[in-house]
């Protein structure tokens, strides 16, 4: 029996990076916020580098609750889209350079809990897809700053999946 040799790691990595970059570039608002995504295998960490324009309360100073909510929402939606296209991407069925790319899920409801005030520092977020159905998906997302064990905000969201 002959087995296909594994692909060189550079090929796998560059394909994954290209797909992620395409996904992120598809949302101009991510660029406006200044958020980025760090990838380790299939695990994504959203990063929001601190910028003075993200401040809501100059007296403390603290991050704007709206900026935090937007960051969590972006982290949730990219995680959901990324994990949804993973299998097709790994199988080489998705071309990151193609004209059309899978559509993003749409937010139905988004509930944010603010646990402590956001410091004027970089923030990180990781999302987990709790349930992925054909039409609806549920995602949990948590954001932290200096200490991973001390989240400053968390959110739960329901999304409408794009038509296949």
């Amino acid at each position: 029996m002959t087995r296909k040799p594994p692909e060189p790691v550079e090929v796998v990595k560059s394909r994954r990076e290209a797909a992620l970059a395409r996904l992120v570039a598809g949302v101009p608002y991510i660029g406006f916020l200044g958020a980025r995504f760090d990838r380790r295998g299939d695990e994504l960490t959203a990063i929001l580098p601190f910028h003075p324009s993200l401040i809501g309360n100059p007296a403390i100073p603290a991050l704007h609750g709206g900026a935090t909510a937007a960051f969590l929402e972006v982290a949730a939606i990219i995680e959901l889209a990324w994990s949804s296209l993973w299998q097709d991407m790994e199988a080489g069925r998705i071309d990151p350079a193609a004209e059309t790319f899978p559509a993003l899920p749409k937010t139905i409801t988004f509930t944010v809990d603010y646990l402590r005030s956001g410091l004027p520092r970089d923030a990180y977020a990781r999302a987990t897809v709790t349930r992925r159905g054909r039409r609806y998906a549920t995602v949990q997302v948590e954001a932290w700053q200096d200490n991973r064990a001390k989240p400053f905000a968390q959110a739960a969201a329901h999304f409408l999946m794009p038509e296949p």
Binding site: V27, G65, A67, A69
Partner: peptide
């Protein structure tokens, strides 16, 4: 528009 921008407006 992205939902996040609308969230920020509604929060404000």
């Amino acid at each position: 528009l992205h939902g996040g921008a609308i969230s920020a407006l509604m929060d404000t």
